[in-house]
Design a protein around this nucleic acid. Structure first.
Lengths: 219, 219
DNA sequence: GGAGAAATTAGACGACTGGAAATTTTTAGA
DNA sequence: TCTAAAAATTTCCAGTCGTCTAATTTCTCC
């Protein structure tokens, strides 16, 4: 019953005018599938069955399974880049507040788009062109700005020095984990934030804890 | 070249006395494989090829791929239970210090045995009997004790109230993430703690940040 | 030393996979 | 209106997978 039955198998030849296929939903579905079951665990054929299209359509449009993966990731990049742009366009006057807003933004993004983090979890333990792509495309673009920010704060004596990776994992895996692994979260007996308000509260809690934790207290 | 060539294909019939197969290393190798490439992404045949044994041996010993997975997880449980026992046997006088030691222990364990956390990352997004097993066996046994500890600390006004899951993810995914996803960590430009001293320092940094972050400061 | 149990491998089976080729239908342009 | 290109499907292929069965070798116990 979980198996979505094919959504109306489109018909054999070229589709009629106005019935052209939209690749957007295909890429979304592919991204979800890769995020849930990993690259190897995802079968293009099963995916196409679920979407009600022939498996050869994927090959025709995207070339190969690997290229489909990259196309889906590129598709996911759009909203991420928008978040980066927003962050760059709304600078806070205070460095610490900028960091705080960055953490909150990160948590909210992971809640809205958990796929990329899930894919990181699948790929991050073994080397491959794919993980290099994710890191170069999603993670490292953010790094220089954050590192400069941290350096300034350390130089000003406002936060303790700490490795970038430590903070990174505390935010993206620690603060966002419950969205990345929702089934585990539920089995843990926890409720996922359901309303935007609850979500915001969680994000702010995480930001509070981490910022308080790294702040150097004036004696 | 990464493909380990078969380690001396044992021979056809029953092995000679003194050459009995030790299932321990088999389970270890299986655990590593499942942790690295996930359940679906792991092929029993490829694994047996790498180990230089016939693929049928796995079935003969463990029954099926799924049962092999459970056997490997049970095998991994032993060191985990030892850590729990140690924790129970060395109670700190102060609740906050107990929490601190628990966090440090957790980080050190993940560094020494990253497989279970990796498997959580693979399984935690989709419901399955497997994830229920991991949570029930590895995660939830720890929960009641920690929750009682947190409740006491909150009641004493020493820490802010916060959901168990939030703290859980901050520790096991945030503080331990760099061991769970070592390749990503390196691509992030970070060095994994190499010596026991560096490792301990990282664990203490994480514990410090989180404890400072959740402590209620006396005004 | 002989018989049966135990432990391993080899081989076969059906299912599924990713990819390529062939086929069908529709559109678009002269 | 005819034709070539486009867009989709069906069919086929070689490979791998998990599992089951049969064969083979050795051990153990009488």
């Amino acid at each position: 019953m979980a198996q979505q039955e094919s959504a109306a198998a489109r018909g054999r030849g070229r589709p009629r005018a106005g019935e052209e296929l939209d690749t957007g939903p295909l890429l979304m579905a592919a991204l979800d599938a890769f995020a849930e079951t990993g690259y190897d665990g995802t079968s293009v054929r099963a995916l196409s069955r679920r979407l009600g299209i022939s498996h050869a359509l994927f090959t025709a449009r995207f070339g190969s399974k690997e290229q489909l993966w990259y196309a889906a990731m590129e598709h996911a990049l759009a909203p991420a880049e928008q978040v980066w742009k927003e962050a760059a366009e709304s600078p806070e006057s205070d460095d610490l507040e900028t960091l705080r807003q960055g953490i909150i933004r990160q948590v909210l993004f992971a809640a809205a788009h958990p796929q990329v983090a899930r894919i990181m979890n699948h790929e991050g333990a073994v080397d491959s062109p794919r993980i290099r792509f994710v890191v170069d495309r999603f993670i490292n673009p953010l790094r220089p700005g954050v590192e400069r920010l941290l350096d300034r704060l350390v130089a000003a004596g406002r936060i303790r020095p700490l490795p970038y990776a430590t903070l990174h994992y505390l935010v993206t895996n620690g603060g966002c984990g419950q969205f990345t692994l929702p089934v585990k979260t539920r089995l843990l007996g926890a409720d996922l934030p359901a309303t935007p308000a609850e979500l915001r509260e969680h994000a702010e809690t995480v930001a509070d804890i981490l910022l308080t934790g790294i702040t150097v207290k004036p004696e």
